[in-house]
Design a protein around this nucleic acid. Structure first.
Length: 490
DNA sequence: CCTGACTCG
DNA sequence: ATTCGAGTCAGG
C-alpha cells in the first residue's frame, strides 16, 4: 500500500475530529485547498462528480494528487522524527486490509431467530407498560426522562437523588436506590432493559442485515478513538450485550456462514493489567501474573494484608473495582461511587493499593510529569496522545488530564498489541490460503469464523498469534472457545 | 478511562 | 422535515 494520509495524520495526532485533505493541506502545508464537500454539496444538495462540468470539477479536485503527495511526504518526515515508522508501516497500514476484509466478509445472522426475539421482547414490554401505567395511575411516555421524572418525583413523591442539567436524573443508579420505596421503580428498570434490547439490538440489527448476504457488515473505523482502539459503527458490534443473561441471548443470533463453519472466540485475559505490570515493572504484580494467580484475589490479599486463602468474595470484588479504577487513572471520587463507600474510605483503598504496588505508584506520578513536560504521552509502540488539559488552570480539567495520562498508555498499548495480533492472524490465514476468516475484534477479543476441517490449525494460529504478538515481562494468556453461535462461545 | 445507538424535545 | 444536545445504557 502506498500511503494513507488519513491514517498517517491520525498517527501524528489522534485527537482530531476529521482528517480531510483540505484540513491536512492547511495544517501541514499552509495551503488553502477547497474541501470536497464545498464542491459536491451535502444532504439534498449533494451532487456526484459525474453530474458536474469537467472544468468546475478540475478547479477543486485537480490539485488533490499534488496535495496528497506533499502531505504524505510531510507526514512521513514526522514519523521519522517521532520514531513512529513501525507503528504506521508495520501495524496500522497492514491493518487496513484486515479490517476491510472483516467488513466485506461480515457476520452471519439468524434472521428468523432475531425476529422471534423481537416479538418476545414486545410481548414483555406490553405487560410491563400496563403495570407501570397502573402503578402510576395514568399513561405517559416512559421513554421520556422528563415525563418519567414528573411521575416519580412529583406525583409519587419519591426523593430526588441526583439532578441533571435539565431536571431530575432517572438513570439506573438513581432507580436502584429508589427500588425499595415504590414498586414502580423496578418495573421501570425492567422496561428500560427490554426497550434497549428491542430497539438497539433486535430492530437495530434487523435494519442493517444485508439482504444479499444475510450478514451484518459493520464499519470498522481506524481513526476515531484517541487511544488507538478501533471503533465499530452501523452497527456497533463491539457493544453486543453479555453481562445480563436476557441481553446475552442476542448472541445466539450471530452464527457461522454455513454448516461447514464454526465460531472461534479468543480473548486476552486481563491484558490491561498485564500491560500495567510490564510498563511499571512492578515486582509484586509481575509475580502474581508469573504464578498465574487470580489477579483480583492476589490484589485483595496484598491490600488487606492476608493470605490469599482468606480472601472473601466481597474482598475480591472490592479489589477488582480498585484494579479497574487503577487502569482508568483512579480517583477516590469515582471509586467511592463504584463501591458505594465514602470518599475517605476509597482514598484508603487506593493508598494501600499503591503501597503494595510501589512501582505502580511511581509510574502514576511519573507519567503525569512526562505528559506535562512533553505535552503528550505514548504507548508501548509510540502511539501519541497530546494532553493540553494538563496545563489547564481549571482543577477539574487538569485532574481529567492526569487520569488520561495514566490511562492512555495502558489502554493504548493494549490496543497496539491486539492490532499486531490481528495483522499476524489475518496474514497467516491468507498465506496458508485457509477458508477461515477473522470477522470481528472487540478490544481484547478476536472472533474467527473457522472452516471445521481447519479448526485445529486455526486455533493454534489464533492463540499463538495473540500470545506472541509481543513479548512482555509477564505472559499474555489467551482463552479460546468455540461454538455454533456467539452465545455458545463462553 | 474509551466508545456508539436510540430516544426525546 | 431535519438537526442537535442531552440523557440513558450497551460494550471494553
Amino acid at each position: 500500500m502506498a500511503f494513507d494520509t488519513m491514517i498517517g495524520a491520525y498517527i501524528i495526532n489522534s485527537s482530531k475530529d476529521t482528517y480531510t485533505i483540505s484540513e491536512l493541506a492547511q495544517e501541514y502545508l499552509n495551503l488553502n485547498v477547497k474541501a470536497v464537500e464545498e464542491l459536491t454539496g451535502k444532504g439534498k444538495n449533494f451532487t456526484l462528480y459525474r453530474d458536474m462540468q469537467p472544468d468546475v470539477l478540475s478547479k477543486t479536485v485537480g490539485i488533490y494528487p499534488y496535495v496528497i503527495n506533499k502531505v504524505s511526504r510531510k507526514i512521513d518526515g514526522l514519523f521519522k522524527e517521532n520514531n513512529q515508522e513501525q507503528l504506521y508501516y508495520d501495524i496500522e497500514l497492514p491493518l487496513v486490509r484486515a479490517l476491510a476484509d472483516m467488513e466485506y466478509y461480515g457476520f452471519k445472522v439468524n434472521v428468523n431467530a432475531l425476529v422471534e426475539f423481537s416479538k418476545e421482547l414486545q410481548e414483555k414490554i406490553d405487560v410491563v407498560t400496563k403495570e407501570i401505567y397502573t402503578l402510576a395511575g395514568e399513561e405517559f411516555n416512559i421513554n421520556s426522562p422528563k415525563q418519567l421524572g414528573v411521575i416519580l418525583f412529583e406525583k409519587l413523591g419519591l426523593p430526588v437523588i441526583k439532578k441533571t442539567k435539565t431536571g431530575y436524573s432517572t438513570d439506573a443508579e438513581v432507580l436502584d436506590e429508589l427500588s425499595d420505596r415504590h414498586e414502580i421503580v423496578e418495573k421501570i428498570l425492567e422496561y428500560r432493559q427490554l426497550v434497549k434490547l428491542k430497539s438497539t439490538y433486535a430492530e437495530g440489527l434487523l435494519a442493517v442485515i444485508n439482504p444479499h448476504t444475510g450478514k451484518i457488515h459493520s464499519s470498522f473505523n481506524q481513526t476515531v478513538t484517541v487511544t488507538g482502539r478501533i471503533s465499530s459503527t452501523e452497527p456497533n458490534l463491539q457493544n453486543i450485550p453479555i453481562k445480563l443473561e436476557m441481553g446475552r441471548k442476542v448472541r445466539k443470533v450471530f452464527i457461522p456462514s454455513n454448516e461447514n463453519y464454526q465460531l472461534l472466540d479468543a480473548d486476552y485475559s486481563q491484558i490491561e493489567l498485564r500491560v500495567l505490570a510490564h510498563i511499571t515493572d512492578d515486582e509484586n504484580m509481575i509475580n502474581a501474573f508469573l504464578n498465574n494467580e487470580d489477579i483480583h484475589t492476589s490484589t485483595a490479599a496484598s491490600v488487606f494484608g492476608i493470605p490469599k486463602e482468606e480472601v472473601t468474595p466481597i474482598m475480591r470484588s472490592r479489589a477488582k473495582a480498585v484494579n479497574f479504577g487503577i487502569v482508568y487513572g483512579i480517583g477516590d471520587f469515582s471509586l467511592a461511587k463504584d463501591l458505594k463507600i465514602s470518599r475517605k474510605e476509597a482514598r484508603m483503598y487506593i493508598d494501600s493499593y499503591l503501597d503494595r504496588y510501589p512501582n505502580v505508584k511511581r509510574y502514576m506520578h511519573d507519567i503525569v510529569e512526562e505528559g506535562k513536560e512533553k505535552g503528550f504521552v505514548t504507548t508501548m509502540f509510540k502511539r501519541r496522545r497530546y494532553l493540553p488539559e494538563l496545563k489547564s488552570r481549571n482543577f477539574n480539567i487538569r485532574s481529567f488530564g492526569e487520569r488520561i495520562a495514566m490511562n492512555t498508555p495502558i489502554q493504548g498499548s493494549a490496543a497496539d498489541i491486539i492490532k499486531i495480533a490481528m495483522v499476524k492472524v489475518h496474514g497467516e490465514l491468507k498465506k496458508r490460503k485457509l477458508k477461515s476468516r477473522l470477522i470481528l475484534q472487540v478490544h481484547d477479543e478476536l472472533i474467527v469464523e473457522v472452516f471445521k476441517e481447519e479448526k485445529e490449525e486455526v486455533e493454534k494460529i489464533l492463540s499463538e498469534g495473540m500470545q506472541n504478538a509481543v513479548s512482555l515481562k509477564v505472559p499474555l494468556v489467551v482463552e479460546v472457545k468455540s461454538g455454533n453461535n456467539w452465545y455458545e462461545t463462553k
